[in-house]
């Protein structure tokens, strides 16, 4: 546990010493602000035509905007995760962790912790934008809370997948491309969400987007939460297993 925190803290500090991390944070904030303002403007145009008991600003601005924040995570998680293990290995510093008296699990969890702190920061910025609407109207906080939990769970799963690919890839660039491809394909499974009969397809069930949507709409179900937790645990376990496997391989 001590080693996990130690590694996590070091990685987090190292993140903020690279221009890439600042660029990603600045870029994602800009994109989210753009999307947010676009939805606010559309809401202002729609508002006069909305019935009094109809959907409010939380449903028409916050939820769709946070869905875009989810798509943004598909792009930035691989870039943030690529240097964590593959980058360390490529420049030779991984030997330090490998020969220290700590387990592979502690290494993986430490790096994961740093990654999740950064993604958490991105999500905090995303949530802060709709929260400012509280100044002029009243928000559905239950719905926002569910959406926050949804995004955090999405970040947990994406972080685990990207870190796992960082453990498998020989170079950081391969890790970034690989995990971007995996996240994108998983996300696109959602497009196949309805079969001809109108039921959810099996492919859609694998898509994180499919499980994120109800949470963004304020519907919390244990099945969706379980999906994210299982994906997270599976890929973190796989990453730790790969690090142990490296000792046996050629």
């Amino acid at each position: 546990m001590k080693a996990t925190l130690l590694i996590g803290r070091r990685e987090l500090r190292a993140f903020f010493r690279t221009p890439l991390a600042w660029l990603i944070l600045a870029g994602s904030t800009f994109v989210m602000a753009w999307v947010f303002l676009w939805y606010v403007q559309r809401f202002l145009e729609l508002q006069p035509r909305l019935p009094a008991a109809g959907p409010g600003v939380s449903a028409l601005v916050a939820s769709p905007m946070l869905f875009w924040a989810g798509i943004l995570l598909v792009l930035i998680t691989p870039l943030l995760a690529m240097r964590l293990i593959a980058g360390d290995r490529a420049r030779g510093s991984f030997a330090l962790l490998r020969t220290a008296p700590i387990s592979s699990t502690a290494i993986v969890l430490g790096k994961y912790l740093a990654l999740e702190c950064l993604l958490g920061l991105v999500i905090a910025v995303a949530i802060a934008m709709p929260l400012t609407l509280q100044l002029g109207t009243s928000l559905d906080f239950g719905r926002l809370l569910a959406a926050t939990v949804g995004l955090l769970l999405l970040a947990a799963a994406f972080g685990a997948i990207s870190l796992c690919l960082s453990a498998f890839a020989p170079h950081p660039a391969a890790a970034a491309f690989g995990s971007f491809a995996v996240l994108l394909i998983l996300w696109l499974f959602n497009l196949a969400s309805k079969t001809a009969a109108g039921a959810d397809s099996a492919l859609a069930y694998l898509s994180p987007g499919h499980h994120l949507m109800p949470l963004l709409a304020g519907e919390v179900s244990s099945a969706d939460i379980a999906y994210f937790l299982i994906v997270t645990a599976f890929f973190l376990g796989l990453a730790a297993w790969k690090l142990d496997l490296d000792r046996l391989g050629a």
């Binding site: 070091r10 190292a14 690279t18 420049r91 030779g92 510093s93 991984f94 330090l96 020969t99």
Partner: peptide
């Protein structure tokens, strides 16, 4: 009980 210097040394240049 072991200290190891691999080749190349395992450094973090940003520290």
């Amino acid at each position: 009980a072991l200290g190891y210097l691999p080749d190349p040394p395992p450094l973090y240049p940003e520290m």
